[in-house]
Every structure is written in structure tokens, then in C-alpha cells.
């Protein structure tokens, strides 16, 4: 098993020193080992209300919505998306710069609610948590407005994509 991996190790020329350095980052298709999960929810008088979107291995998209207040029903949908869809999503994540951020200074989850964003992409694994963010004002007032803004917009773009996918496939109107 270990010998197989030798093929994947690439040798690159360091631009600064000119020395050859071994980089242990196999050039492989980022859609192959991709995972993403986003959760937003809170516990209140309508119980545990939440929305969770998950892209599992192999393009399996899962959509869960426990919004008892508006729909009085739990929605659980699952469909497999093509590689082209994953590429759109991965490009979105890459361009957002979220993989370079850190949640250290973000407001912690509280009684208002919780958001979780977990992504495995290109040998990096982020698992961020924060509270619910209602507006850009809250982002600006935080200790890490730039980082939180990246998160804030990325989440909207991801939700937009997933709601289009789920909406078109199942003909349901996802509740935001």
C-alpha cells in the first residue's frame, strides 16, 4: 500500500531557493475526497429547529429541515449530484477563501443558535462553529469582521445552490 503512494509524491522546484523540495500533495481530483456539511439551528419553543445540508462522498447531497413552526413537518431529502455540481461547489468554496479562515474570534454558539460548517477539501479539514448571524451589522461588530464576512457570504451562496438543486429535483420550496 505504501509503495503505491510514491507515485503520487511530486517534486517541485522551490521558487525562492531553487532547491528541489518534496511536496507531499498528490495532484488529484478534489471532488474525490470532498465533504461538506452546514448546520444552522436552535432549540426553542418549537423544539429543535434546524437546517442541515450535507455533501457526502460520491456526491450524495442530503437536505434536512426541521422547521416545525412553518411547515410542521420534518423534511429529509437525498439525491446524488454529478461531478459537475461538486466542481461548482468546490470552486465556490475555493474562491471564498474560507479554508484560510479560522473561527477563533467568531462569536460562539449561544441561546440564539448555532451554525456549523465542516469541509474536507484537498487534505484540509475545517470545522467551524459560531452563533446565528442575522445581519452584516453583526458581522461588522465582531472581532473578525473580514473572516466572518467570508463565512456569511459563502453560506448564502451554498444555500442558494442547494435550494436550487433541491427545489428543482423535488419541487419543494425550501424554507430559509
Amino acid at each position: 500500500m505504501e509503495t503505491e503512494n510514491k507515485d503520487e509524491i511530486t517534486v517541485e522546484q522551490s521558487t525562492t531557493t531553487g532547491d528541489a523540495i518534496v511536496v507531499d500533495t498528490p495532484k488529484k481530483d478534489p471532488t474525490e475526497d470532498f465533504y461538506m456539511r452546514y448546520y444552522i439551528g436552535h432549540k426553542g419553543k418549537f423544539g429543535h429547529e434546524f437546517l442541515e445540508l450535507e455533501f457526502r462522498n460520491g456526491g450524495k447531497l442530503r437536505y434536512a429541515n426541521n422547521s416545525r413552526y412553518k411547515s410542521e413537518q420534518i423534511i429529509r431529502k437525498e439525491v446524488t449530484v454529478s461531478k459537475a455540481v461538486l466542481e461548482v461547489l468546490i470552486k465556490m468554496i475555493g474562491e471564498s477563501g474560507v479554508m484560510q479562515e479560522d473561527d477563533k474570534l467568531w462569536p460562539e454558539p449561544d441561546v440564539v443558535g448555532k451554525q456549523e460548517l465542516e469541509i474536507v477539501l484537498n487534505n484540509e479539514h475545517i470545522s467551524f462553529t459560531t452563533t446565528k448571524i442575522g445581519s452584516l451589522m453583526e458581522v461588522e461588530k465582531s472581532k473578525d469582521p473580514e473572516g466572518l464576512k467570508v463565512f456569511f457570504y459563502l453560506i448564502q451562496d451554498i444555500k442558494c445552490l442547494v435550494f436550487s438543486l433541491i427545489g428543482l429535483h423535488f419541487k419543494i420550496k425550501p424554507i430559509q
Partner: peptide, 14 residues
Amino acid sequence: LPSRQKGRGHDDSE
């Protein structure tokens, strides 16, 4: 396992 990980979500105490 991914070689780099970041974020409070990894924290087991939570």
C-alpha cells in the same frame, strides 16, 4: 486523515 485541521468544531469538549 487530512493533514491540516482547523476550527472549534474539532474540539471534543464541545
